[in-house]
Amino acid sequence: MEYMVQLENIHKSFGKNQILKGVNMNIRKGEVVVILGPSGSGKTTLLRTINFLDSANEGSISVSNFKVNCNKHSKSQVIELRRKTAMVFQNYNLFQNKTILENVMEGLIVVKKYNKKEAKKVSMEILDKVGLLERCDYYPSQLSGGQQQRAGIARALIMDPDVILFDEPTSALDPELVGEVLNTIKAVSQTGITMIVVTHEISFAKEVASRVVFMEGGNIVEEGKPTEMLVNPKEPRTQQFLKRII
């Protein structure tokens, strides 16, 4: 297996607006790719095309050698692709009608067909890792944003995906809660799982990323090692962007 994730020539339009203009990306197993870029550049859309929450108009997506053609795919292919990926949302999107434990167990029971007892045992272990053991019987609305997002990470992790997609996981959080979530993501990255993270947290990117990708206007403008990209980017557009957010 050469690459864990391969995006080939991804095009996506909403109506007449072309949002992604032929994105290519190859990601090896265990890589942590951080995507930077101004608002509206298509970062969220790119992540959403990977698990077909939005389906791209053109191109192909392959995750751990399972390849799906974007303009010619079946429902079962989409389901299978989604089972190889997991997503952490900007607004957490925890199931409001379920407790934290039930949120985490849901995928194991419904998708992986675990029995309840087993599912609970595994879920408790994960909740312990993200520091939510004591909150497992709370409903999402009873938790802070940081706790909700950690639960969102647990819900994604438990599916044992080949790649986790993070869409600005900390940008809906109060500043004092950002740290706990970033630390959780950092810990996840050390387990060797492949990750694609959209974020504006530059110091986090420096520490965790194996590669930084800069996107603008639906294209990848530049990519490279975090030390090069974040300190000495070549493209003037990248330089400008970094100057603005640091």
């Binding site: 698990n51 929450l53 389901i79 989604r82 089972r83 990926t85 997991a86 997503m87 949302f89 607004n91 999107n93 925890l94 199931f95 409001q96 849901e106 995928g107 998708v111 819900r155 994604a156 599916m159």
Partner: peptide
């Protein structure tokens, strides 16, 4: 988002 979260875990 509730539906999308459900889809995202397969």
């Amino acid at each position: 988002g509730q539906c999308e979260a459900a889809y995202s875990i397969g």
